[in-house]
Design a protein around this nucleic acid. Structure first.
Lengths: 296, 296
DNA sequence: GTCATCAGATTAGTTTTTCTAATTCGATCA
DNA sequence: TGATCGAATTAGAAAAACTAATCTGATGAC
């Protein structure tokens, strides 16, 4: 266990030694010359030897001051460099991001190659989990969350607006029991999310009644649900972000136009204090661009 | 102008990182764990990134903390080493001492070879001047002063008690006008110090009157006075310390036994805070030993 | 020589920072 | 299940740092 001298005294000493003037040192540190005088006096008392010769219109370093200065400078340089390194940690190395598994599988992972092409030095590490990360307890740099963008202490950037609409495979729509109107849903298997609320909400928005909502399997993961729909196992209410890719590829179609808007959305979040770290800023910029392209 | 992170926060961080425990870090720094928690939180806010992962019964360093630690350690090591170097500056190098010219010439300089033999690494630099040095304004480590040993803020060690008695050359005493009793002084030249008080005081102590004190030259430097006496130019009231060497060598003799005691003495003084610096302590120890030998 | 000026010291009082005490929280362990 | 442990949090207390005002002593202009 090392015994350190008074650190703020050393800072005052270093500035005064550099300027050979208490007044200029005070200017640099945004305090009054009296404060510098106090600090240096205390440091001298602690070290047991004068560090400055006080002449009338100038101060000079004593031998002891001369001896102290290089080491102090050196020490401060290293502290500043270490802090600097951490503060704007170079835009390289690991970037830990927590993502909802459904969005990861359906939206983010397919785009990762593009991110890597753009930022080959950033080693993006995705953790796909339903848990809401606590940045103060877990070592994550950022997360993609679904919600209203009202998380205190976090910087939240809207990525993808959300909306729901029914989707099914083309073969289902054009098959022996075609889907032309919502009433046709009676003849089809309804696939649900784990809350089994999606169909009820959409049917209410569409103004349709008399459909039995108790039928059909449910999936605890949005990605699995989409997979089931693509496989032609039924009709589901899809989240735009999760089905956009399959719609574009023609593996899914929208049998009806009615859309259920929701006030929740996907947000990129990170601790407010860390928002401008280069790696995080780079990831955010890329993500926002991808999302804009996706929605536009 | 470098921008330093909060230094006390870094100190708390370093201790906590070393112990991987806020509580133990608090113990080391003699504060409560809450103080450590505060400091580190502030540092994290400043650096814009968490440094610790708070688990339930332990804290772990984040990547950022891992990255910060070595540099901080390194910086502190250098600061501590620099302070350490100055604090107990090695017993080598320059030692600046201010001495009264008379004592320097008659007492100290003849002994310097012995000091150098004992402490070859200490480069003793004597400044012989009548000025009373102000340690806060001049770069002196120590001084030998004549007085009562009551200088505030200074460590004072009694070196040589002082007393006055007449001295003359052997040839003068044994010459055509011998010096047997104080009355014989009438036939001799009296040599004075610059205050011209020495003879008056001694004659009063000896209970002698009727001697003309206006006669004879005066010297502003005790050493010159002794030189004049050795040269047989008259009789002087000598300071014990300044004539002891000449007496021992037989170049001076004491015609009378009466001694005028004085309450002043020679003291070694230095700033109280610097009293135990190795170089100064070494010089003091040697000086005290020489003085004891001289008096004993 | 006298006076204004300058840089720092000093003192006392204020502000800011830092710390503590008390309580809470969440997880582990008996 | 309850006890315990380590850290977080809060409000308030203690300590450190700072400021404002004044003083000092040398310098340089006039």
């Amino acid at each position: 266990m090392r015994s350190l001298p008074p650190l703020n005294g050393l800072r005052a000493f270093e500035a005064a030694a550099r300027h050979l003037s208490f007044a200029r040192a005070a200017g640099e540190l945004n305090v009054t010359p009296a404060a510098i005088s106090h600090q240096i006096k205390a440091l001298e008392a602690r070290l047991g030897t004068p560090l400055f010769r006080r002449r009338n219109r100038e101060v000079l370093l004593t031998d002891a001051g001369q001896a102290l200065l290089p080491g102090v400078r050196d020490g401060f340089d290293r502290l500043a460099a270490a802090a600097e390194r951490v503060q704007s940690r170079e835009a390289v190395g690991a970037l830990n991001v927590s993502v909802l598994p459904s969005l990861a599988a359906r939206w983010l992972v397919p785009r990762l190659a593009r991110f890597h092409a753009r930022h080959p030095d950033i080693d993006l590490r995705l953790s796909a989990t339903q848990n809401v990360v606590d940045f103060s307890r877990e070592d994550f740099d950022a997360a993609i969350r679904h919600g209203r963008g009202t998380w205190p202490g976090l910087r939240c950037d809207l990525l993808l607006r959300d909306e729901f609409f029914p989707v099914c495979s083309p073969s289902l729509r054009e098959g022996p029991l075609p889907l032309r109107t919502p009433e046709d849903l009676r003849h089809h298997v309804l696939l649900h999310d784990s809350a089994r609320e999606d169909w009820r909400l959409w049917l209410a928005a569409a103004g349709i009644g008399g459909i039995d909502l108790s039928r059909g399997p449910s999936f605890n993961d949005g990605s699995l649900l989409v997979q089931a729909v693509v496989a032609g196992q039924g009709v589901a209410v899809g989240r735009r972000a999760l089905v956009a890719g399959e719609l574009a590829a023609g593996r899914l179609v929208r049998p009806f136009d009615v859309v259920l808007p929701v006030d929740r959305a996907y947000y990129l979040v990170c601790p407010a204090a860390a928002a401008e770290r280069p790696k995080i800023a780079a990831f955010r910029a890329w993500l926002m661009a991808e999302a804009a392209e996706d929605e536009g």
